[in-house]
């Protein structure tokens, strides 16, 4: 899997309503996708994204709940403004914004995460290896736990 592009998935732990979807994310993600669960997208700090990018992520995917379905009422709304601006900013600095993907999942979106991950992987594969900002030593397979 050395040639596969590395993707970091930040998943809000409440956004997958179907247990089989969560099970797939927890245990059956493709090897090149590194999972970081967060309590809410509102918990995401720009530093998380930057650390993933500097660690060599060729793509960053963020999955969260749709508006008005946030477990914490408004966490996703506050994340929306920040993360949107941060990806614009990274693009300005020189990290292709196509490498950052957001997906909002609703109650009826059963089975959607698998499709989104596959689609994004294909897109990142086409973009190739990222040569910007990946200045830290490479992220080990399966994730680095300090």
């Amino acid at each position: 899997m050395d040639t596969a592009k590395k993707i970091v998935l930040f998943q809000c732990q409440w956004c997958l309503y179907a247990p089989e979807d969560q099970d797939w994310v927890d245990h059956h993600l493709p090897e090149n996708v590194h999972l970081t669960k967060v309590p809410c997208t509102g918990r995401l700090d720009p530093l998380f994204i930057l650390n993933a990018v500097q660690g060599g992520a060729d793509g960053v995917m963020i999955s969260g709940c749709v508006p008005e379905k946030c477990h914490f009422k408004e966490g996703n709304l506050s994340a929306r403004r920040q993360m949107d601006e941060f990806s614009d900013f990274l693009n300005y600095v020189g990290y292709d914004e196509d490498r950052i993907c957001f997906t909002w999942l609703d109650l009826q979106d059963r089975g959607r995460i698998q499709k989104d991950v596959a689609e994004f992987s294909k897109k990142v594969e086409a973009l190739g290896k990222s040569h910007s900002l990946n200045t830290r030593s490479v992220l080990p397979q399966g994730g680095a736990h300090d």
Partner: peptide
């Protein structure tokens, strides 16, 4: 400041059920 607030109608790349 914008980051101290948010709005249900914010328009940006977070799209329900879609990619960027």
């Amino acid at each position: 400041t914008p980051f101290a607030a948010f709005n249900l109608d914010d328009k940006n790349r977070f799209v329900a059920g879609g990619t960027s």
